[in-house]
Design a protein around this nucleic acid. Structure first.
Lengths: 106, 106
DNA sequence: TCCTCACTGAAGCTGAAACTTCAGTCTCGG
DNA sequence: CCGAGACTGAAGTTTCAGCTTCAGTGAGGA
């Protein structure tokens, strides 16, 4: 299980509650690393590590402004996720339409 | 962090690669526990445990037919996930429209 | 210039999650 | 009724993701 796809990395990233809390906060507007760390009660290092993961799969962005890192939501990863779910559903629906086995098995 | 919401449990469930593999297989049609375990190279017990988690958050269903457990996709959890993403996006888009700070900050 | 503030990198710790084994239970075919 | 096959439950093991601390680095204010 090496070299995951983007959707794998997105789902894995969203699996962690601290990262979801970071994203929720970023949803309200841009934040610094300290601004994110404080309400969560974790170290700056922890937030930096999470942010790296969120950036690597396109769920967050950041850039350094002076000595402060400004973090924000990246919508690209969420679009990827939305498309993935749509694709999944269409696969099942096609299969179910084709076989018509819902009523048959239930 | 006790008593997670349904969307939290869904995302946490999808975070695991083995569970995603199980769902991918179920996407092709119903399967028994053994049918799921064999290609994954894990024990039946492991699959049972994962299935329990997937059922608890509405991503899979199963029922026992004789001595075989028949497992399938549950679309309910995926609908919940799809709605969650839509909601998230609409929140950000509202904020960005209101503040018009994309160009201003970049 | 010097100090503080905001972070970063390296390295180690720890608890929860994923996995295993093994001993049942229940179903079905012969 | 007996045996094999499909799971299930309990209990133990192990890995690793998320966390910490601490020692830098580099920006900016006094």
């Amino acid at each position: 299980m090496e070299a995951q796809s983007e959707i794998d990395r997105i789902l894995q990233a969203l699996g962690d509650p601290t990262r979801r809390a970071i994203l929720a906060r970023l949803g309200e507007g841009p934040q610094s690393i300290s601004g994110l760390a404080e309400p969560l009660g974790v170290s700056l290092t922890a937030v930096s590590q999470h942010l790296q993961i969120l950036q690597d799969c396109g769920l967050a962005q950041s850039r350094k402004v002076g000595r402060v890192r400004s973090c924000r939501i990246d919508t690209q990863g969420f679009r990827t996720l939305e498309n993935w779910i749509r694709d999944q559903r269409s696969v099942w629906e096609q299969r179910l339409d084709r076989l018509g086995d819902i009523a048959a098995e239930d």
